[in-house]
């Protein structure tokens, strides 16, 4: 197939031109790069004191709901054959923080939601992820570590849901106060084992 002049054919040239010119880098890479530059004194990090306080409050809300689901034991019946779902809660810039004097009420709202769903047998449990901790993206020969910045979208916690099917699980998820305040959630069915 080698041609004497070894030039690309028009078809080959066209195939190369169709190759994508961009790829989405992993989100953590931006933070890792900014951190590397800041560590060398090449960037000045912005101050986020106000946002830090607000973020801590918002994560506390999730903690309230999740802690309730973890410790309340009036829960799902043993032998329940319904599919299980993982509901991941994310917080980002769109999450509407409560005013300082409304934090307690917001916490109570999450607690009431989790308690009600637990009573209905819809929530099996959940955990809050520790906020402000370094996030490591690990592969076989590398680990990229970065520290999430306040205001950056991050995974805040998760619930384990029991529901008849995905549609029912979505219906449950949509009642969570988290979405009303601009949080986002990802629902995935858990593979039965």
């Amino acid at each position: 197939m080698m041609r004497p002049d070894d030039e690309l054919t028009p078809e080959e040239r066209a195939a190369l031109e169709r190759l994508p010119r961009a790829a989405a880098p992993p989100p953590a890479l931006e933070e890792a790069t900014v951190a590397a530059l800041a560590a060398r004194g090449l960037l000045r990090r912005r101050r986020w004191l106000g946002a830090t306080a607000a973020l801590a409050a918002s994560l506390m809300l999730v903690a309230g709901g999740l802690a309730l689901s973890r410790f309340d034991s009036t829960a799902v019946a043993p032998g329940d054959a319904r599919p299980r779902f993982a509901l991941f809660l994310y917080e980002g810039p769109a999450y509407r923080q409560p005013a300082p004097d409304a934090v307690a009420a917001r916490v109570q709202e999450y607690i009431e939601w989790a308690r009600a769903e637990r009573t209905h047998g819809s929530i099996e449990g959940g955990e809050k992820l520790r906020d402000g901790e370094a996030v490591a993206i690990v592969s076989v020969d590398s680990a990229v570590v970065s520290t999430p910045r306040p205001g950056e979208t991050q995974l805040a916690g998760y619930f384990l849901i029991r529901a008849a099917d995905q549609r029912s699980a979505v219906a449950i998820a949509r009642t969570c106060p988290h979405v009303r305040y601009g949080g986002t959630m990802v629902l995935r069915e858990i593979e039965p084992t």
Binding site: A22, E30, T33, V34, L37, L43
Partner: peptide, 23 residues
């Protein structure tokens, strides 16, 4: 970025050029 280590300016540059650089 060069003058004052402006983080926002760097992030703008990064987001503009990194998809091609990463590819």
């Amino acid at each position: 970025v060069a003058r004052s280590g402006d983080e926002a300016a760097f992030r703008a540059l990064y987001r503009r050029h990194t998809p091609a650089l990463y590819r």
